[in-house]
Amino acid sequence: MWNDDQLTILLKIIREAGSEILSVYSDNSNFRVNYKDDDSPITKADRLANRIIVRALKKLPVNFPILSEESEKPPYRERESWTDYWLVDPLDGTKEFIKRNGEFTVNIAHIRNGVPEMGAVHVPVSGVTYLGKKGSGAWMVDQDDITKEIQARKMENSPSSIKVLTSRSHSNDSLDNLVKDISKEIGDTEVVTMGSSLKICLLAEGKADLYPRQTPTCEWDTAAAHAVLAGSGGEIFDANFRVLKYNQKSSLLNPNFFAVADPNFDWGKLL
């Protein structure tokens, strides 16, 4: 069990947002989809969850700025001076929410100097929450408050099998070719498709080895789960195998990346 008041507070906030999302999810009369300027979908659940999270974070003793997918984005000339801030995706996997497959999450991360210091990822349908803090560990808490510490698994030096996670809603030829190359190199390659930041949480839970991402994501899509993965012993690297960092540029898009369970494995030889 963690010994950190902020993690406990995040658990409470993120569960409240998840409950609000479920109220919309289960009410067909409230289930309307609109589209933002970039053609990405947004629902009433996104807005309600965002309101709950932002209000709660603003009440905390720490006066950190808040950057949320569903709030106005400050310009980089303002953001670049931030040392600490909250990075929020009130409903990650809106497409999965619309499809009603349950693979959507609520994400809250505390970023310090570009690095995810702490994160919480909540799965409203299952009631499971993943929590992680840099240097402290990572945990999974179910809806009955049963808590277990989680650890990412290690790769053998010459692995005979690998489990690769890919996005349910975003794929391309480059990713397909990469998976084929991995299969040729290792042989026994299991590929599992899944929505939202759940993929990164599965790495943290020790249930998979690699999540390569070669289509666009935003920083709020990955930051909270990145904190969980790092707390469990894993990591996220960019295409040059540098640790993925946040708020380093005007654009809020992530580069292509590799989320890995074992950062000490020589992924460069495989990828």
Rank of each mutant, 00 (worst) to 15 (best):
P124L: 12
V115Q: 10
V123H: 00
G132M: 00
K134E: 15
L131S: 06
G135Y: 05
R79G: 03
N113G: 08
G132R: 05
R112G: 04
L91E: 08
F104E: 00
K99A: 15
K99G: 07
K134Q: 14
W82E: 01
P116V: 04
W86F: 15
D89Q: 09
G102R: 10
W86C: 05
G137N: 04
G132I: 01
P116Q: 02
R100C: 04
F97I: 12
W86H: 04
N113Q: 14
E117L: 15
H110S: 09
L91W: 01
A120T: 02
S126P: 10
R79S: 01
R79K: 09
E96H: 02
D84Q: 09
W82N: 08
P116G: 06
G127D: 14
R77D: 15
N107E: 07
H110Y: 09
D89P: 00
R79W: 01
K95Y: 03
P90T: 13
H110D: 04
G102E: 00
T94W: 10
Y130F: 15
I111K: 09
I108E: 05
V88W: 00
E80I: 14
D92A: 02
V121E: 00
V125C: 03
L91V: 11
I108G: 02
R100F: 08
K134R: 14
T94S: 11
W82T: 07
D84H: 13
T83C: 12
K95V: 13
N113L: 08
L87K: 05
E103R: 00
R79E: 05
F104M: 00
K99M: 14
L131R: 04
V125F: 07
E96P: 01
W82V: 12
G137E: 09
A120I: 02
T94D: 06
A109R: 09
A120V: 05
F104P: 04
K134V: 13
G114V: 13
A120F: 02
S136T: 14
T94K: 07
T83M: 07
I111P: 03
D84E: 12
D84L: 05
E103G: 01
P116T: 02
I108A: 04
L87N: 03
P124Q: 14
F104I: 04
I108H: 06
G137F: 09
T105H: 00
I98E: 03
K133F: 04
T94Q: 07
V123R: 02
V128G: 00
K133L: 12
G93A: 05
V121N: 08
A109I: 12
K134S: 15
R79P: 08
A120L: 10
E96L: 04
V121D: 02
H110G: 07
D84W: 12
L87T: 05
G127N: 13
N107M: 02
F97N: 11
N113W: 06
G135I: 10
P116K: 03
S126I: 11
I111C: 07
E96T: 04
P116S: 14
T129Q: 06
D89I: 04
D92C: 06
T129W: 01
K99C: 03
V115T: 13
A120P: 00
A109E: 10
D84S: 13
V106L: 03
H122Q: 07
R100K: 15
R77G: 12
I108M: 06
